[in-house]
Amino acid sequence: MFKLRYTLPAILLLVGAAIYFFGSQPEEKIVRVDMSVRAEIRVPEPRQAITYAYLPQYSHKVSYLRHSKLIDYLSRKSGFALRQVFPDTFEEHRRMVENGEIDISFSNPMTYVEIARSGARAFARIIEPSGSPTFRGQIITRKDNRAITRLEDCIGKTWIAVDRLSAGGYLFPLGLFFKHGIKQSDFKEISFAPGPGGKQEKAVLAVYAGKYDFASIREGTLNVVRDKINIDKIKIVAETEPFPGWVYAARKGLSPKIINKIKYCMFSMSMADPEQAAILYQAGMRGIIPAEDSDYDPVRELAEELGLLHDSQQGEH
């Protein structure tokens, strides 16, 4: 009786407090939405970029490091946004240019001859670190390989090349062999560097490790790999004749306004300017000069001699 006497008033007090607090809240306003009235929201589009690709002769990391400052410089000076893209293979690079996915291609002469067939056009080429607007292919082996001291010693040996579309890393040396009466069938094996990118390095490393008797590379590659191997253990067996250097080409349909502005910025660069010299040096060049499609006619003649133009028409690479 004592418990009931005190418990009942306590319960009534709690119930009253609840009614007071919850019942005294302001009535929630109902918001009615008219679904027939709609407003279109526009999401701001990102600034369109001009795509720039370096033919993947080296790893993507090397390609980026070599050209990142040059791309930044051209973007600042031209007022256009440039974005570097990274094809995995020479063939993918070619297809991307043809499909309009690469606006500005930086490639070897043989790849240029291929993409020119789909309407791409050369507008600039580089001056090599040697100071020449041309470059060569090189045939290399280990210095302690006494079985190969001259070009003819390569007969019956294993050869690792860079890529079927590599100029200095395969096609120029193949042309040199042809001039000396040496055909593909005269070698024990011809292999190509595997995987995406970095193929010049892989060809050198394969010979350095003794996996192949000799390799073909483009002039200048040994300087690129000197931090990975002791290049004093490599010897150059032969060099090809010089061909016009690496080329900048615009895809078919790229605005002449864009091309002309970028050309102006490129041709204005000088080794006499410390900032520009550092950018050019990092990119592996001493300058950029004008180019025309006809500059690469010697490369077309070589491709014709090797039967490559006929093969490319049939889609055989």
Rank of each mutant, 00 (worst) to 15 (best):
M1Y: 03
F2W: 13
K3V: 10
T7G: 06
P9K: 07
A10E: 06
L14D: 13
Y20Q: 12
Y20W: 08
F22E: 15
Q25D: 10
K29A: 00
I30D: 10
V33K: 08
D34A: 01
R42Y: 04
R42E: 07
R42K: 04
R42C: 10
E45W: 15
R47G: 15
Q48C: 10
A49K: 06
T51W: 08
A53F: 06
P56R: 04
P56T: 08
V62K: 06
L65E: 15
R66P: 06
K69T: 05
D72Y: 11
R76M: 04
S78R: 07
F80I: 05
A81S: 14
Q84I: 11
V85D: 14
H93E: 09
R94D: 11
M96G: 15
V97K: 07
N99T: 07
G100W: 01
F106I: 13
S107I: 08
T111D: 13
T111S: 11
T111R: 02
V113R: 01
R117G: 14
A120P: 01
A124K: 05
R125V: 04
R125M: 11
P129W: 07
S132A: 03
T134L: 03
T134S: 00
F135M: 00
I139W: 05
I139Q: 12
I139V: 02
N145R: 00
R146T: 14
A147H: 08
L151V: 02
E152N: 15
T158M: 04
I160W: 01
R164C: 14
L165T: 13
A167E: 00
F177D: 04
F178S: 13
K179S: 09
G181S: 06
G181K: 05
I182Q: 02
K183H: 14
S185Q: 11
K188N: 12
E189T: 09
F192V: 02
P194Y: 04
P194C: 03
P196G: 14
G197L: 02
G198E: 05
Q200P: 12
E201I: 01
L205E: 05
G210W: 00
R218N: 09
T221E: 01
T221Y: 02
L222A: 09
N223Q: 12
V224D: 12
V224P: 08
R226T: 12
I231F: 07
I231H: 09
K233F: 08
I234V: 03
I236D: 05
E241W: 11
G245A: 07
A249L: 07
L254T: 07
P256T: 12
K261T: 13
C265T: 12
M266N: 02
M266E: 10
S268A: 04
M269F: 00
S270W: 00
M271F: 09
A272C: 13
P274Q: 01
P274T: 01
E275Y: 01
Q276S: 12
Q276A: 14
Q276C: 06
A277M: 11
L280E: 04
Y281I: 15
Q282Y: 13
A283F: 00
G284K: 00
R286L: 03
G287C: 09
I289F: 09
I289S: 09
D293M: 09
V299L: 01
L302Q: 06
L306T: 15
L309V: 11
H310T: 15
S312H: 11
Q314W: 13
G315T: 04
E316M: 14
E316D: 15
E316L: 15
